[in-house]
Amino acid sequence: MTSRGTAAALARSAHLGPTLVVTGVTLGLGIAVGADAWRVALLTAGMLLGQLSVGWSNDWLDAGADRAAGRTDKPAADGRIDPALLRTAAFVALVPGLLLPLPASPPAALLHVVFVASAWTYNLGLKRTPVSVLPYIVSFGSLPALATLLLSPPMWPPFWATAAGAALGIAAHFANVVPDVEADRAEGSRGLPQLLGARVAGALAALVVLGAAVLIAVGARPGPVGLIALLLTVLAAVVGLVAALSARPTRTAFRAVMAAALLLVVALLAAGSAL
């Protein structure tokens, strides 16, 4: 394979969508709370590398199962990249990813270790168990604290922000898995969304987003931008809820809930000054 082909396969295996979203939220929250630019930069760089390690480890660890399932969307499953290379890339990214935030804030760096370790436990097997949602709760719930712990002196965010982050994680997990529930079941996965089924998981994801929107509205008392984002969040979540509960749920539920989750991120960023 050419170097260009290898680079493309690495990018494909990195789960760039979620990686860039989580990295962008980290950057946005750090700026919103007023942390020093150099501290925000170090944490954001660490988060990017940590998330790359999570994405690459996921495809490395799942290569055998993905190959058996005939997954053509995974480079490690169809021979476009050697799983051993993904393993190497995951660890090469992991070490500096964990170390970079340390000069910015030891408390934030320690929490970032928990964040990344939680995501790795998902890849290492928790995603196939009934507690598959736990790493999402831990990691997303810690995002507001990662930002406020960059401040001098470090401080913990209010409860509503942590709860809203955790709710965002639940919604992200459910909405991300819903389209593949049946295929995952066939492969033997028994994660929480697979056990609940697409309809229930989609409906719960929408309800959790609605709950998070209420938490932000009450806790942050948002300005015009945040309020608009919350109203759009509620609208998208209601569309997702109705679609999920329909007689024949379609991908509309998944798309609506994902849109609601992204809008919730905007609302949380707009509420950053209240953290």
Rank of each mutant, 00 (worst) to 15 (best):
A63H: 11
A63P: 15
A65K: 10
R67D: 09
A68Q: 13
A69S: 11
G70F: 07
G70E: 07
P75A: 10
A77V: 13
I81E: 11
D82C: 02
D82A: 09
P83D: 09
A84M: 11
L86V: 05
A89I: 06
A93L: 09
A93Q: 05
V95L: 14
V95G: 10
P96T: 12
L98A: 10
L98E: 15
L100I: 10
L102C: 06
A104N: 04
L110G: 14
L110F: 15
H112A: 12
V113K: 09
V116R: 03
S118N: 05
L124G: 05
G125A: 11
L126P: 05
R128G: 15
T129G: 09
L134W: 01
L134V: 14
Y136N: 03
I137H: 06
G141S: 00
G141T: 00
S142K: 06
S142N: 04
P144C: 11
A147S: 01
T148K: 04
L151R: 03
S152A: 12
M155K: 13
F159W: 02
F159G: 02
A161N: 00
A161Y: 00
T162F: 00
A163D: 00
A164Y: 00
G165E: 10
A167M: 03
G169I: 00
I170A: 12
I170Y: 07
A171Y: 06
A175V: 09
V177Q: 08
P179V: 10
E182W: 02
A183P: 04
G188V: 15
L192I: 11
P193N: 05
P193D: 08
L196V: 01
A198I: 07
A198S: 04
R199T: 07
